[in-house]
Simulated assay, not measured.
Amino acid sequence: MALSRTSTTGKYADFEALREQAVALRRSGLSRRQIRDELKIHNNDILNRLLQGEPPPEWTKRPNAKDDLRARARELRLQGWTYDRIEAELGCSRSSVSLWVRDLPRPERKRSSEEASAIARRGWEAKLLLREEERQDTKDRARQEVGTLSPRELFLVGVGLYWAEGTKDKPHARREQVTFVNSDPGVISTFLAWLDLMEVDRALLRFSVMIHETADVAGAERYWADLTGAGPSQFNKTTLKRHNPKTARKNTGESYRGCLVIKVLKSADLYRRIEGSWYGIVCGAAHRQG
Rank of each mutant, 00 (worst) to 15 (best):
E108S: 12
E108H: 12
R109H: 05
R109P: 00
K110S: 05
K110M: 06
R111C: 00
E114S: 11
A116S: 10
S117Y: 03
A118H: 07
I119S: 03
A120N: 10
R122G: 00
G123R: 15
E125Q: 15
E125S: 09
K127Q: 14
K127A: 06
L128S: 07
L128V: 09
L129T: 09
R131F: 04
E133F: 04
E133N: 10
E134G: 02
Q136S: 07
Q136P: 01
Q136M: 12
D137N: 13
D137F: 07
T138R: 15
T138C: 11
T138K: 15
D140R: 15
A142Y: 07
R143P: 02
R143S: 08
Q144L: 11
Q144W: 01
E145C: 08
V146L: 14
G147W: 06
G147L: 05
T148L: 14
L149F: 09
L149Q: 07
L149G: 06
S150M: 06
S150R: 11
P151M: 05
R152E: 12
R152G: 02
E153P: 03
L154D: 05
F155Q: 12
L156M: 10
V157F: 12
V157W: 12
G158N: 03
G158H: 04
G158F: 03
V159T: 07
L161S: 05
L161D: 05
Y162Q: 04
Y162L: 06
Y162M: 07
W163L: 07
W163T: 00
A164M: 06
E165G: 03
G166F: 08
G166S: 08
T167F: 01
K168I: 01
K168A: 03
D169S: 15
D169Q: 11
D169K: 11
K170R: 15
K170L: 12
